[in-house]
C-alpha cells in the first residue's frame, strides 16, 4: 500500500505541471458556469457533470458496461485474428499476396459508411458493434505483426539452427520475440480506436451503450449526461491503453536488465 502511495507521489512530482494546468482549467470552467457566463445547457459545469454521474449511477454503469463489453470483445478478436493473419502472411508469400490487398481495402472503406450496413445485416445488438470494433482495430494489429515478423537476425537464426532448432522453435524463441514491440505498437493504436469504433456503431444504431446515451441525450439538451458519458469513455479508453502498456512492459522488453 505504502509502495503504491509512494509511486503515486512520484508520479505527481513528475507530472505536477500537467496536473496543475488541469486543475486550473477545471476551476475556470466551474467559475464560468457559476457566474452564468455560459448557459449550463450549453456547457454544464464540472460539478453538474459529477452530480449527474452520481444521480444516475446505475444507469451510467449499465451503459458503460455495454460499451466495455463491445470494445473488449471486438478488440480481443482483432488481436487473435490479427496475430494469426500476420503470422500466416509472414509464413506464406502466396497468402501475403492474396490477403494483403483485401486487408488494406477493408481499411480504406470509411467505417461510417460501413456501419449502417452492418447494423442492417447483424442487428442493433452486440454482434454488429463487435464487428465494427473488430474492423477498426484489426488493421494496425495485423500490420504490426506482419512488419514485426520481418525483423530478424540471420546470425541468431543460424545459431539456433546449429543447435538443431526447427522452424517452429526459431519462431517461438526468436522471431516472435523480435516482433512483439511492433505488435504492441499496433495494439496500442487499436486500443484507442476500438473505443471510437464502438461509439460510432452505437451512434448509428443501438439500444444501449455510452454512444447511444450521447445520441439520445444531445437533442434533449441533457448536456450534463452527454458530458458524463464523454468522461466515462475517456476513463475507459485510458484504462484500456494503460493495461496494454503494462502488458507491453512485461512481455515485449527485449533488452532486459538495463
Amino acid at each position: 500500500m505504502l509502495k503504491i502511495i509512494n509511486k503515486l507521489f512520484n508520479y505527481f512530482l513528475e507530472w505536477y505541471m500537467a496536473i496543475i494546468i488541469f486543475l486550473i482549467l477545471i476551476v475556470i470552467w466551474q467559475l464560468l458556469s457559476n457566474f452564468k457566463l455560459i448557459e449550463p445547457w450549453l456547457l454544464p459545469s464540472p460539478i453538474d457533470i459529477i452530480k449527474e454521474l452520481i444521480n444516475s449511477k446505475e444507469f451510467m454503469i449499465y451503459h458503460t458496461g455495454v460499451t466495455a463489453i463491445e470494445v473488449i470483445s471486438g478488440f480481443l478478436l482483432a488481436i487473435v485474428l490479427g496475430a494469426i493473419f500476420g503470422l500466416m502472411m509472414n509464413l506464406s508469400k502466396v497468402l501475403q499476396k492474396s490477403l494483403l490487398p483485401y486487408i488494406i481495402a477493408s481499411q480504406v472503406i470509411p467505417i461510417f459508411a460501413l456501419a449502417p450496413i452492418l447494423i442492417v445485416w447483424f442487428g442493433a445488438g452486440f454482434l454488429s458493434k463487435i464487428i465494427v470494433v473488430f474492423l477498426i482495430s484489426f488493421f494496425p494489429i495485423v500490420i504490426g505483426v506482419f512488419d514485426g515478423l520481418k525483423n530478424y537476425d540471420t546470425d541468431m537464426e543460424n545459431l539456433l539452427k546449429t543447435m538443431g532448432a526447427n522452424k517452429i522453435q526459431i519462431y517461438l524463441r526468436l522471431r516472435i520475440k523480435l516482433a512483439l514491440p511492433s505488435l504492441f505498437s499496433g495494439i496500442k493504436v487499436s486500443s484507442v480506436s476500438s473505443v471510437i469504433g464502438a461509439v460510432v456503431a452505437e451512434w448509428i444504431g443501438s439500444k444501449a451503450g455510452l454512444g447511444w446515451i450521447m445520441k439520445v441525450s444531445g437533442p434533449l439538451f441533457q448536456t450534463d449526461r452527454v458530458f458524463a458519458s464523454i468522461l466515462l469513455l475517456s476513463i475507459f479508453a485510458s484504462i484500456l491503453f494503460y493495461v496494454v502498456k503494462l502488458l507491453e512492459i512485461n512481455l515485449s522488453k527485449i533488452n532486459k536488465g538495463v
Binding site: D155, M156, L159, K161, T162, G164, K177, N255, G257
Partner: peptide, 14 residues
C-alpha cells in the same frame, strides 16, 4: 544440431 558453432558476435539473447 550436431556441431556447436560459436560465431564472432556473442549472439546472446538479451
Amino acid at each position: 544440431g550436431k556441431i556447436a558453432y560459436m560465431q564472432q558476435r556473442d549472439l546472446l539473447f538479451n
